[in-house]
Design a protein around this nucleic acid. Structure first.
Length: 291
DNA sequence: ATGGTGACCTGACCGC
DNA sequence: TGCGGTCAGGTCACCA
């Protein structure tokens, strides 16, 4: 269940495990989108020290003071993945592919389950800890090509404008495709792309190089606002333990156009339409978002 | 270079 | 009730 707010919420949910020791790891299938490392159980005895996020990737940093060793795990939740915590009476579900057993200082046990029906996720070792402080240093297959973080101060209308016009003729691809391109800006998935374009009154098919700086400013402002709001809401649902069953995230919040093709535009009442862009449904209001 | 498509998978839902 | 088709929050590899 990954758009950036969900990943951020998952990151926050892991904080109670920081400082806890891994006492076992069970791998229940050999692969997800990539093979799951067969030596995950070498984490046994390691302590979770830090959880960070880059784009939609979670980085779990472990160390083992006794051996002066550290390991970092890279986790991506794919389309349907989640990291869920249970007490040790939990019965393994058929989609619980990896179970990490944790123990705190009082001896209380927690199971952390990587659950992913569609198995589009990724769990692999990250080579080192370089990305703890330096987002750009890792020549890693997954992390090296990522663009700017959407909530970073450097992500502005001007950033997009510069990206588009650095080339002589500019980038003519549809704006929705551009903002979903992880090499441009990370973490904007299909839902928030549709919502932010609606709020900025920009047609998803608008060629990027037809947009003014003012339009790009507005779009960026809406992307930031909607992601921040979603993170806050994700965080608030976290207080009760219902977050554990994965229905609580963004499905709970009000989406204005995503998934509402054929319904009335909440602003003007026109019928919302759907266009396929890059294989993804893109709902928009033909009246509020003229091409 | 870059745009479009297929691939990876299961599950939910819809219409017959 | 059952079956086939379609669609789903992501991303990479490949081909034209």
């Amino acid at each position: 269940m990954p758009e950036l707010p969900e990943v951020e919420t998952t990151k926050t949910s892991l904080s109670p495990l920081i400082g806890q020791t891994v006492n076992f790891v069970q791998r229940h299938r050999p692969n997800l989108r990539e093979p799951i490392p067969s030596d995950l159980d070498t984490l046994t005895g390691f302590v979770l020290r830090l959880v960070t996020r880059r784009a939609k990737y979670l980085l779990l940093h472990f160390d083992n003071v006794k051996d002066n060793a550290n390991k970092t795990l890279l986790v991506h939740l794919g389309m349907s993945g989640s990291l869920l915590q249970y007490d040790d009476t939990h019965q393994k579900d058929k989609h619980d592919h990896i179970i990490f057993g944790f123990t705190d200082a009082q001896g209380t046990k927690t199971l952390l389950c990587y659950h992913d029906p569609r198995r589009f996720g990724i769990v692999v070792w990250a080579d080192n800890d370089a990305f703890i402080d330096n987002k750009d240093s890792m020549a890693d297959k997954y992390l090296s090509r990522l663009g700017i973080e959407p909530l970073d101060d450097g992500f502005t209308g001007d950033y997009l404008y510069q990206y588009i016009y650095r080339r002589a003729k500019g980038v003519s691809k549809p704006i929705k495709t551009l903002i979903m391109d992880q090499a441009v800006v990370v973490g904007v998935g299909n839902i928030y792309a549709a919502e932010s374009l609606f709020l900025a009154k920009i047609h998803p098919c608008s060629p990027a190089n037809h947009l003014s700086l003012a339009q790009l400013d507005l779009l960026v402002a809406h992307i930031k606002a909607i992601l921040q709001q979603a993170i806050i809401q994700g965080g608030s649902t976290l207080k009760d333990f219902k977050v554990a069953d994965n229905k609580t995230g963004y499905f709970q919040q009000t989406l204005l156009v995503y998934g509402r093709a054929g319904e009335m535009c909440p602003t003007c009442g026109a019928v919302l339409e759907n266009v396929k862009l890059g294989g993804r449904a893109s709902v928009y209001c033909p009246k509020c978002q003229p091409l």
